[in-house]
Computed example of a mutant assay.
Amino acid sequence: MAPTVHRVGSFRYFFYSREETRMHIHVSHPDSEARFWLQPEVSLAENRGLSPRQLRTAERFVKDPHLELQNAWRAFFASGRTP
């Protein structure tokens, strides 16, 4: 399961229901994807094909609502799903 948390243009922000426990968000764009840590601060964890410009845009849209993304993570996993 990979619930969509946020969409901006052609970027989709989501997390997988059965993945590692460190709080993070995936960002997909057609044919590419990146992953950002949400704690202790927003930082790039992995990039699979986003151009430097796309990566900057993706990161900006993680940093701006990062508290909302953290709250979505907590709410999703508090409902009994395990990362």
Results as ranks from 00 to 15, higher is better:
24 H>A: 01
24 H>P: 03
59 E>V: 03
81 R>I: 06
7 R>D: 11
58 A>W: 11
5 V>L: 14
57 T>G: 02
62 V>F: 11
83 P>Y: 08
33 E>G: 02
40 P>Q: 01
20 E>V: 07
74 R>C: 10
29 H>D: 00
44 L>C: 06
32 S>P: 13
55 L>Y: 10
28 S>H: 00
41 E>S: 12
54 Q>E: 14
21 T>S: 12
41 E>T: 10
44 L>F: 05
78 A>S: 15
56 R>V: 14
62 V>G: 07
57 T>Y: 00
65 P>F: 07
67 L>R: 15
22 R>H: 15
57 T>Q: 13
15 F>K: 01
42 V>P: 14
29 H>W: 10
60 R>C: 04
22 R>I: 04
59 E>K: 12
40 P>V: 03
24 H>T: 02
71 N>T: 05
23 M>W: 12
2 A>V: 02
44 L>T: 08
38 L>F: 12
64 D>N: 11
58 A>Y: 10
54 Q>H: 08
17 S>W: 00
17 S>R: 04
7 R>C: 09
48 R>Y: 06
7 R>L: 03
24 H>E: 00
49 G>W: 05
19 E>C: 04
48 R>L: 07
56 R>Y: 05
67 L>H: 14
22 R>G: 08
15 F>P: 06
13 Y>I: 06
6 H>V: 01
75 A>L: 11
80 G>N: 10
46 E>R: 13
13 Y>V: 08
23 M>C: 12
73 W>G: 06
11 F>I: 09
76 F>V: 09
56 R>D: 09
20 E>G: 14
52 P>V: 08
18 R>D: 04
49 G>P: 12
45 A>L: 11
3 P>K: 02
37 W>R: 07
23 M>L: 13
70 Q>T: 09
74 R>S: 13
63 K>A: 07
21 T>Y: 00
37 W>G: 01
78 A>M: 07
69 L>F: 03
52 P>C: 10
49 G>H: 06
2 A>R: 09
59 E>A: 09
82 T>R: 15
63 K>W: 15
28 S>N: 02
50 L>M: 15
5 V>C: 05
14 F>I: 03
65 P>K: 08
36 F>A: 03
12 R>D: 04
49 G>V: 08
55 L>S: 13
37 W>I: 06
58 A>G: 08
24 H>F: 00
76 F>I: 09
36 F>W: 03
35 R>Y: 01
20 E>M: 02
9 G>P: 04
7 R>W: 00
70 Q>G: 05
12 R>A: 02
11 F>N: 06
20 E>I: 04
27 V>I: 04
21 T>G: 11
68 E>I: 03
48 R>E: 06
33 E>I: 14
78 A>P: 05
10 S>L: 09
55 L>A: 11
69 L>G: 09
54 Q>N: 05
80 G>I: 03
50 L>C: 04
68 E>H: 11
60 R>S: 11
47 N>Y: 04
19 E>H: 13
6 H>K: 13
53 R>W: 08
61 F>I: 01
60 R>E: 11
61 F>K: 13
23 M>K: 15
65 P>L: 05
29 H>R: 11
39 Q>Y: 03
44 L>Y: 03
35 R>N: 05
1 M>P: 15
34 A>G: 09
39 Q>V: 08
3 P>L: 02
